[in-house]
Design a protein around this nucleic acid. Structure first.
Length: 572
RNA sequence: AGGGAAGUAGCUCAAUCGGCAGAGCAGGUGCCUUUGGAGCACAAGGUUAAAGGUUCGAGUCCUUUCUUCCCUGCCA
C-alpha cells in the first residue's frame, strides 16, 4: 500500500530541517506512552502521526515507555499498550525501549550537571518548595540550599540514591532562574525519592527522574530527531532545550500539536480510570469506552481508526471533533467489508396464509453487494416469519412506505407479500400479521413489472437462531462532558448508553459465527460478535447504526401535525 | 505591564514567493435503488477575530486591540 502523503505544519518543519541539513536528512520519531492506563483514540492520533511521519520520510519510529513514576505504572498497562499498538498495525520491530533503561545514564547526566554547578540538592519540604516557587505573576525566591558547594551536592545526591533520606526530604533541582516568567524554569525538580518498586528495575532505585529530566535525554540517547508532543508541553520546551544544551548531547527538536478531543466522550486518563473503578462501565474494554480496546470490542477496525486520524489532520488549534466523523469512517470501512445478514431485533410474527405449511425454500442471498467475491448464501423461507415491528404501521403516516394493512412490500430475496389482516391482543397491541404472498415474485421481483416501495428484512421463525444484542449509544449526553468545571462529568453519563435485547432472531447462517466477526444486519446496523458469546448463545455488539433517513422523514413528518397544536393554542 | 500558544464555513483542516479564500464531514434539496443502506447530482454556507498601516494587490507582511486556551505536582 502506498504511503499517504499528508502535509501539515510538522512536515513543513521537517522539510525545512531536511533542506538545512540539521539532521542530515534523518527522520526518527517515537511514541512515548506512560504505562498508567489504556490507550485511547486520542493516543491513536499521536501514534498515527509519529509512525506515519516516520514511514512517510523513510525513517523510524520507536516505541518508548515513559516509566519514570513507579507509583502509577503497572505491567498490565505495558502489555495492553503493546497489544493495542499491534492491533492498530504499527511496527517498531525490536525498537521497544523504556525510559527506565536509561536510569544509569540519566544518573550520570545529573551528576554532570551538579559538577558544572547547574544542579543542587534541596532539602526544602514539598510545601516550602511550592511557596518559594512564587506564583504566575510573582517571581520565586531562591532556596537557602541553592548555593551549596559542588562536593556537598555530590555527596547529598549519593545519599539520596543510597537511602539516606526519606521520601520528601530532599530533591535534586536544576539551578536555572527562580524569577523566570516560565514556571518550569524556576529550578525544576530533576530527581525525587520514591519508595516504590519499579515494574522493571525492581528495588534498584529509590530516586527517580522527573519527566522533564528524562524525556529529552531519552530522545537524545535514541537519536530521535523530532520529538512530537501535545500543546501543554510548549512551556516545557525551553527546559527540554536547557537540559540538552547544558549536558551537551545530541539535540532533537520538540514539536507540539493539538491533541484530539472527541465530542460526547472524555479523553483524560484520570477520568477514564474513574469510569472503570466506579463501575460506570464494565472495564477498560467496554465498547462504550473511547479506548482502543473498547473500540476494538465495539467492532471498529484499525483501518477505520487510521483513516479517521488522517482525516482529522494535525494542527495547533484546540478543538473538538464530532463523533459523527469517527462513525462516518467505520461505516465507510464496514460497508466495504462486512457481510450482510438478516436479523430481527424487535420481532412481529407474520403468517403467510397461502404459503404451504410444510414447505421450506432455500433462497439465495447476496453476502456483500460491495464485493462480488463474497458470494451468496442460502436463507430458509417458510410460512411463519418475523419482521421488524417498526416495519409495520396500522395507520401509516405519509411517506411511510413499509407494511400496512392492504399494502404490498418485498421481503428481501423472497417474495412480495400483502398484509390482509392484523391480529391484536386484548390490550389492542398488534401481535401478529396475516399476509398473502405472490408465488410469481420469488427472489423479489414481479414478472409483470409492478413495483413496491419498500423491502423488508425477515427471519424464518422455524429457523431463527436466538442471540443477544447489545445496543450502544453515546456514553455521554452532552458534547463536552468535561467542559463544566462545576459539574462532575459523571453527571452527564447517558443512562441509555447500553440496551440489551435478548433474544433477537438471526438467520441460521450465523450459527457458527466467531468472536470478532463483523456483520451488517441489513437495514439496521453493523454488529460484531462479542467475546461473551458461548456455544449456546451469540452476543452481538452494535458497532454503529446505518444512516437512517427514515428518522429524518419522521422528524419532518411531525411538522404537519404541529399546525393542529398551534391552532389549539391560538383558540385558547 | 507574569510566561506560552491559537483565532479561516457549524466541525476538522487547506490556501506555493503577497495574486480570484478551497476540501472533507455535518446540515439542506433532489435523483436513484431488491438495504429508506450504498451511490449520484445540486445548492447553501465567509466582513479570514477587529482596527489601522505597507502594497497595484494582504488570510499571508507591520502595528495595536479583542477573544479563547495552557502553565504555580517531589504527575506525565
Amino acid at each position: 500500500m502506498a504511503v499517504e502523503k499528508s502535509k501539515n505544519f510538522i512536515t513543513d518543519i521537517i522539510d525545512a530541517h531536511n533542506e538545512s541539513g540539521r539532521f542530515d536528512g534523518r527522520v526518527h520519531t517515537r511514541f512515548p506512552p506512560e504505562p498508567n492506563g489504556y490507550l485511547h483514540i486520542g493516543h491513536a492520533k499521536s501514534i498515527c502521526l509519529n509512525f506515519g511521519i516516520a514511514e512517510q520520510y523513510g525513517g523510524l519510529c520507536n516505541l518508548r515507555f515513559d516509566d519514570t513514576n513507579p507509583a502509577k505504572e503497572e505491567q498490565e498497562y505495558i502489555d495492553a499498550i503493546i497489544e493495542d499498538l499491534r492491533w492498530l498495525g504499527f511496527k517498531w520491530h525490536d525498537r521497544v525501549y523504556f525510559a527506565s533503561d536509561y536510569f544509569d545514564e540519566l544518573y550520570e547526566m545529573a551528576v554532570e550537571l551538579i559538577q558544572i554547578g547547574r544542579a543542587y540538592v534541596d532539602e526544602l519540604s514539598p510545601d516550602q518548595i511550592r511557596e518559594y516557587r512564587g506564583t504566575l505573576s510573582q517571581p520565586g525566591i531562591d532556596s537557602p540550599y541553592r548555593d551549596r558547594p559542588v562536593v556537598e551536592n555530590l555527596a547529598l545526591f549519593e545519599k539520596m540514591r543510597d537511602g539516606g533520606f526519606n521520601e520528601g526530604e530532599a530533591v535534586l533541582r536544576a539551578k536555572i532562574d527562580m524569577s523566570s516568567g516560565n514556571i518550569n524554569m524556576r529550578d525544576p525538580v530533576m530527581y525525587r525519592i520514591l519508595d516504590a518498586a519499579h515494574p522493571r528495575t525492581g528495588d534498584k532505585w529509590r530516586i527517580y527522574p522527573m519527566y522533564d529530566f528524562a524525556h529529552g535525554q531519552s530522545d537524545s540517547i535514541e537519536g530521535i530527531t523530532h520529538s512530537i508532543c501535545t500543546l501543554e508541553y510548549e512551556d516545557h520546551r525551553p527546559l527540554y532545550d536547557w537540559y540538552l544544551d547544558n549536558i551537551e548531547i545530541f539535540h532533537p527538536q520538540q514539536i507540539e500539536f493539538a491533541r484530539l478531543n472527541l465530542s460526547h466522550t472524555i479523553m483524560s486518563k484520570r477520568k477514564l480510570i474513574r469510569l472503570v473503578r466506579e463501575g460506570c462501565v464494565r472495564g477498560w474494554d467496554d465498547p462504550r469506552m473511547p479506548t482502543i480496546s473498547g473500540l476494538r470490542r465495539r467492532g471498529y477496525t484499525p483501518e477505520a481508526i487510521r483513516e479517521f486520524c488522517e482525516d482529522v489532520g494535525v494542527g495547533k488549534v484546540k478543538g473538538v471533533v464530532a463523533l459523527h466523523k469517527l462513525e462516518y469512517h467505520i461505516r465507510q470501512d464496514l460497508n466495504r467489508r462486512a457481510q450482510r445478514v438478516m436479523a430481527v431485533l424487535n420481532p412481529l410474527k407474520v403468517v403467510i396464509e397461502n404459503y404451504p405449511a410444510d414447505l421450506v425454500e432455500e433462497l439465495e442471498a447476496i453476502n456483500n453487494p460491495e464485493d462480488e467475491s463474497a458470494g451468496t448464501r442460502p436463507v430458509p423461507f417458510s410460512k411463519v416469519i418475523y419482521i421488524e415491528r417498526d416495519d409495520f404501521m396500522e395507520d401509516p403516516p405519509r411517506r411511510f412506505f413499509r407494511l400496512a394493512p392492504g399494502r404490498e412490500v418485498r421481503l428481501r430475496y423472497a417474495y412480495f407479500i400483502t398484509c390482509t389482516d392484523v391480529i391484536k391482543d386484548e390490550t389492542g397491541e398488534v401481535i401478529e400479521l396475516r399476509c398473502r404472498y405472490d408465488p410469481a415474485t420469488r427472489g423479489g421481483s414481479a414478472p409483470d413489472g409492478r413495483r413496491v416501495k419498500a423491502t423488508l428484512h425477515w427471519v424464518s421463525a422455524r429457523h431463527a437462531v436466538e442471540a443477544e444484542a447489545r445496543l450502544y449509544e453515546n456514553l455521554f449526553t452532552v458534547e463536552r462532558p468535561e467542559a463544566d468545571a462545576e459539574v462532575d462529568f459523571t453527571n452527564f453519563i447517558n443512562p441509555n448508553s447500553l440496551t440489551v435485547i435478548d433474544p433477537i432472531y438471526v438467520e441460521p447462517s450465523l450459527a457458527g459465527a466467531q468472536v470478532g466477526e463483523r456483520y451488517q444486519f441489513e437495514r439496521l446496523a453493523y454488529f460484531v460478535v462479542d467475546e461473551d458469546s458461548t456455544a449456546e448463545k451469540l452476543v452481538f455488539n452494535r458497532t454503529v447504526t446505518l444512516r437512517d433517513q427514515w428518522r429524518k422523514v419522521r422528524k419532518q413528518g411531525r411538522k404537519p401535525g404541529k399546525p393542529g397544536r398551534r391552532k389549539t393554542a391560538r383558540t385558547v
